[in-house]
Design a protein around this nucleic acid. Structure first.
Lengths: 148, 148
DNA sequence: CCTTTTATTTGCGATATGCAAGTATTTGTT
DNA sequence: AACAAATACTTGCATATCGCAAATAAAAGG
């Protein structure tokens, strides 16, 4: 059996690099973490602070401060939750939505470029493989368990 | 076409989580970055500072300081390169080798657990897919280009 | 010999991090 | 109702990380 870790190491390294290209939209400079936060808020349904922080496995205190920054940048809105006033619901402002959509488009463009080096069949196989891998990681007892 | 980014987002998130479990060996606490540095030094052939920093796409100044820390921890050795005295060759100390091997074993164990949820055929397919993906990312003009 | 380039280090200011502790609110108990 | 315990979030603080600009030191090119 060849070195499986090597394979994963290379992949994560390259995905990381790919990721880093995707954090500037016009005037706005985002850190990687911030772009992930925007992505998660967009994806989740009226999430609370806790929920997003947990989904991204970010410490809640760090997360709290990141959100403060994003609110100041006018990308995220914090709405008090009427049924439980300890809770804040997070959402994207119109500007936040715009930025998130831009980043999403850019990432997808990058990925399309990567996939352009494959045949249609290979592309299907790779995507199916990633889907399967995600499922199996979700099943794993080692990581990810409480978070997804 | 479904959302490809979603797939990659989930995968990188989970790989990141998996990674985070792998940075403590006995008394020694490593950051994620530090464990990647050890891995690269181990893998490369008598690399210089530059080479490792570049392979990991870490800023050279940050890298310099990380190496100082790892040298203090007695995990990495810096050897002056006789042919060019500006250069330092990096290598692992016996302790560094031990720690790196331990981490490697742990990661492989985690991966084996993830793969245990697949059939042999699926496992082969997934590994082949990752290999292909790595190749295509290396070919990509968007990222990774000067680095690998 | 002197200018330029290259490899690495240091100064510094801006963030990011996470633990401990604090505030505010809700929930559970009697 | 009253109060202890739990929960959601924020702030203080000490530490770590980041990357640009500048410094140092050595090599390479004229």
């Amino acid at each position: 059996m060849e070195n499986v870790r090597e394979l994963f190491h290379t992949m994560t390294k390259r995905l990381g690099l790919l990721d880093r290209n995707c954090c500037t939209v016009g005037e706005i400079e985002l850190s990687l973490v911030q772009s992930h936060i925007l992505y998660e808020i967009d994806r989740m349904n009226e999430p609370s602070m806790q929920q997003v922080a947990e989904a991204l496995a970010i410490d809640i205190t760090t997360f709290s401060r990141q959100i403060q920054t994003l609110v100041k940048m006018n990308l995220v809105k914090k709405t008090p939750y009427p049924r439980d006033r300890r809770v804040y619901i997070l959402s994207l402002t119109p500007e936040g939505k715009y930025v998130t959509a831009k980043i999403d488009a850019e990432v997808n463009e990058y990925l399309a470029e990567v996939f352009s080096h494959m045949t249609e069949f290979e592309r299907e196989t790779v995507l199916r493989s990633i889907r399967l891998l995600n499922e199996c990681m979700a099943k794993s007892t080692v990581c990810c368990k409480p978070l997804f």
